[in-house]
Design a protein around this nucleic acid. Structure first.
Lengths: 253, 253
DNA sequence: CCTTTTCCACCTAGGTGCTAACCT
DNA sequence: AGGTTAGCACCTAGGTGGAAAAGG
């Protein structure tokens, strides 16, 4: 119960009372998600992660990747990601104080678009076979984006959420809650059009292969493996995060 | 009837008598496939198309691409491709006579592997929304291939086949033929480990963007558009090929 | 001799942060 | 002054046929 409260507060979901919630669909009760590369996410999170948003769309780095367990191998699931505002504030980075500060109320938020993993829908066995990577997800600040990318406000803070949805065959009456939501707090980030914290820039350059051209010669790949070997390995059991929300489908826009 | 015979002879499918064939599943009766870029295929075919096979796998060029019509928007389909030997002969290219000649009996053929389009299964509406491209299909001559690529014998001739399979919900007894096969004769090709006909090489270089590095300066993209503009456009209606075979599932290995 | 393999330069396609210009 | 944009050099990732070497 306390855990449920903490999560609700954390991600700001309007979670209905337990007693009013439909029971979970059987194919979801044992579902678990683990975050991949938690150490890398942790490194960024300690500095306050920044994600670039551009008109043409920008990938996330680190990439949001999860490992699934406890799915029904034969049931069909879709894996979705959306983004909830952490608060309704606008931020700016104080270079002077080297930290983020609230500058005022947040801009209007459109209902978050939902990114569906392109292998959706697929059987549980498929999802459990390998890491589920949302590498194709792109962030944009273009409110008129026509590519289906996730629209975010720059200088606002967001929390990615992973939703598992069961596609029932024909379970007579809809008595089940068909959706389950997982949240990994270390993946919270600030949307920006240009990096603010120079240490974030350096960490991106050091860890994103596509930014290798900006690395100082001496800081090669070995550096990362040395300082955070664990983040490169599947670390399901030890990093399992059980923040499952019995969020009703109605809570989705 | 005459058409049915001609097609059967062409691709060498062991097609059962009409009278013994189960009736087509309702979601397949109006299904039609059209070949994309038929003019480009025709150009290659006139010279006897060659496709490279390598140990590590090689894409086809031209890419096999089709347009679908007449599917049930709500029914689920898979799109498959396999390759049937045109004959049981081994060929060699006579540089002297500039043509392919039979040199003896064909090597043993393993049952053709089947390449499933990676969006399978999906609703009919999805397949009809855009061109269905089998660009990820790879050909290999490695009989021990562990990547799921299509295994072919070099210096043998093959006919690609496109299969549409319906995924029925629970149609009580299996009284329907759930599969339909389409064949485009202009896509027949010779498997080779190195190009034999120099004119084929030149046509590949002229039309495959990845081979642009080998083009003579003057023969740029405009050349292709000028000489076969139609091949670059969707030309469904005028090039619809209706070679549908009521091939029983049993004819598949 | 005919066929296959390996390595390569040269492409396509697209993901990086930097920089300078631009906007408000 | 703070925030955004567009073009860029530099990467990753991988699809071309050529040429020379290696098989058989």
């Amino acid at each position: 119960m306390a855990k449920s409260f903490a999560i609700r507060d954390l991600i700001g979901v309007d979670s209905p009372q337990r007693s009013h919630v439909k029971p979970l669909h059987p194919a979801l009760v044992t579902a678990e998600l683990g975050l991949e590369a938690p150490d890398l996410w942790q490194k960024f999170n300690q500095l306050t992660t920044e994600m670039i948003v551009t008109k043409s769309g920008r990938r996330m780095f680190p990439t949001l990747q999860v490992v699934a367990r406890g799915l029904d191998p034969h049931a069909n699931y879709s894996f979705l990601v959306d983004f909830s505002p952490v608060d309704e504030k606008r931020y700016r980075y104080s270079f002077h104080q080297s930290r983020w500060m609230i500058t005022g109320p947040g801009d209007a938020e459109l209902p978050s678009r939902v990114h569906a993993h392109n292998e959706s829908p697929a059987p549980g066995a498929h999802w459990m076979r390998q890491v589920i990577s949302f590498e194709k997800l792109k962030l944009t600040n273009n409110q008129l984006d026509a590519n289906g990318y996730i629209i975010l406000n720059s200088m606002h803070r967001y929390q990615p959420r992973v939703h598992i949805v069961v596609h029932d065959r024909v379970d007579a009456p809809k008595v089940w809650n068909m959706q389950r939501t997982f949240v990994f707090p270390s993946t919270t980030f600030m949307a920006v059009t240009a990096y603010q914290n120079h240490r974030i820039t350096q960490l991106k350059i050091a860890s994103n292969p596509f930014a290798k051209g900006f690395r100082d010669s001496e800081m090669d790949d070995a550096w990362l493996y040395q300082t955070s070997a664990v983040s490169m390995l599947p670390t399901f059991s030890s990093n399992l995060y059980l923040a499952s929300l019995a969020a009703a489908t109605s809570s989705k826009h």
